[in-house]
Amino acid sequence: MSGEHPSERLIERYVAGSPAIAAASSPAVVAVGEPDAPADELWALEAHLEACRVCRDRLSVVVPARAPAVATLVGTVWSGLEPRLTATSQAPRRRRLGVRLPVRLSGWLTPVMVPWLAMAASVTVIALLLDLFGTGGGTGRVPLVLLLAPVLPVLGVAASWSRGLDPAYELTASVPGAGLPLVLRRTASVLAVLVPALLVGGWVTGVMVAQWLLPCLTFTSATLALGGLVGVTRAAVALVAVWAAVIVAPGLATTSGTVFTLRDGSLPVWGLLLALATGVVIARRGAYFVLGTHR
């Protein structure tokens, strides 16, 4: 807004009313007619008043003195409106305590993801407890946290973009805000919950961060990459099966300490897979804009 404001006189003339205003505004203004405010001046003034709070305040100061009829009309309308306004504005405020938080977070996760995340987090805690108290049935020295790390986020990711689990999936897929950024936001929120939990678990059981973080990210990324091709739910199921066959089974069978797939030497392989999966996700980002071909 420029620094220019209408003169006091112009505002007074506006309050007093003119035939041009009379045609456009309330009947209360019609009574006192002063014909010397041209239509374009009026238009400019009203446009300015709509945007300028200072001048609206100046106007409201002038009104009671110059146009008592308008002032009483406004007073009547206001007194009729006030009780209803207080009644309606309180209704939403009452909810604010319990419900606001998830709604503010809805840009990051959907309500259906919450139970899945809770489950993944509690599995982490249980695994950690089993590790700590040494009852991790027959795993030898392979911490359960390490075994579970890759597959936990897969569950959350599956719930974040799945046709079967998310009731609003079709609606979400049809909006301009859909696509990879939204999927990544939801994935990030899954990781934001699980990575700290795993971090604590890894620290307590003395596992190197890269040892679980890389498989964890690789599986997450692979879920999305495969999900773009066959649907996220199917991808998650397939990857959990792969995880069970390649990591858990040898992990439970072996007594020699570390499983090959989670040994330090395998980290470059995990890194390579992660890069590959990320590449596929980026190359096929358009797939997150359309409906999956299955449920």
Binding site: P92, R95, V99, P102, V103, S106, G107, T110, P111, V112, P167, A168, L171, T172, V175, P176, G177, A178, L182
Partner: peptide, 17 residues
């Protein structure tokens, strides 16, 4: 989403749109 109020749901979709 069942937990959302009508306004929250429409707001959410407006944000997505």
């Amino acid at each position: 989403y069942k937990r959302f109020t009508v306004r929250e749901f429409v707001e959410y979709l407006a944000w997505l749109k």
